[in-house]
């Protein structure tokens, strides 16, 4: 089985791109399944089901979604193997732009959209910078100049990645992506022992543990204060 990890900011078009890409793979007679990771709720699994794609979803609830991903990816891989999949795709939304779920030696795809603003590539951390393939969406509604500027900004934070423009509505470009995701010679049995490409943020302050009250007295553990600078003597 092959594993590909899709990640990207909310509403950037991940699900549309994955659906169009799997559709483009139909003729190749490959079994493709998806596991969708999200935080509170998702209906994307229904979209995959409608398209006849084996799907599971994982909601992290009160946990950090990326930590949840890392704690469950092995189980998910074993599910894919039990289902006899040729290709397993995981989809997860990068919620604070700080983390990335990518694993070393596993293909990582970042989906990001032209509408998110010209400074977005700068704001996104390892989720964009450590991806192997960057898919840029929503190019059909912004100007050619903006597409070019956006792509060049992506290139300067991640020159190693291959950048592709895909239209999630018409699927233009999805076939091309589909040719890059599956490698016959690769046979993944487990991800145990593999490493994340970039460590996740350190956490564990009192709010991680369920504290709701505001104020210094209730803050414990890993706490940091904003530097406003105007009270310095």
């Amino acid at each position: 089985m092959n594993l590909v990890i899709f990640s990207g900011p909310p509403s950037s078009g991940k699900t549309s791109i994955i659906l169009k890409t799997i559709e483009a793979m139909r003729k190749r007679d490959l079994q493709v399944g998806v596991v969708k990771f999200d935080c509170l709720s998702t209906d994307d699994d229904i979209l995959y089901e409608k398209a006849g794609i084996p799907v599971k979803k994982g909601l992290s609830g009160a946990l950090c979604p990326d930590h949840y991903f890392a704690s469950n990816i092995e189980e998910v891989v074993q599910w894919g193997r039990r289902r006899g999949l040729d290709l397993l795709i995981t989809e997860s939304a990068g919620l604070c732009n700080r983390c990335s779920p990518y694993i070393k030696s596993i293909k990582g795809v970042c989906v990001i959209d032209n509408l998110s603003g010209i400074n977005t590539p700068k704001k996104i951390g390892p989720m964009l910078k450590a991806a192997d393939i960057v898919v840029i969406t929503k190019g059909d509604i912004v100007s050619q100049a903006e597409r070019e500027v956006f792509a060049s900004k992506v290139n300067s934070v991640n020159p190693k990645a291959m950048t592709m423009h895909i239209n999630g509505l018409t699927g233009q470009g999805a076939f091309e992506l589909s040719t890059l995701l599956y490698d016959e010679d690769e046979n993944l049995e487990s991800v145990t022992g593999m490493e994340l490409r970039y460590p996740m943020p350190s956490a564990l302050c009192s709010y991680c543990l369920g504290e709701t009250r505001i104020g210094d007295d209730f803050q414990m553990g890993n706490v940091r204060k904003i530097e406003l600078g105007d009270m310095d003597e």
């Binding site: 032209n114 509408l115 603003g117 010209i118 960057v134 190019g139 059909d140 509604i141 912004v142 100007s143 050619q144 903006e146 070019e148 792509a151 060049s152 992506v154 290139n155 291959m162 950048t163 423009h165």
Partner: peptide, 19 residues
Amino acid sequence: FSSNNKLVAQLSQNMNFVM
């Protein structure tokens, strides 16, 4: 494969400036 060398530029009625 290169992001700086795309063969086709597109112009369409639906395109807007967003910056």
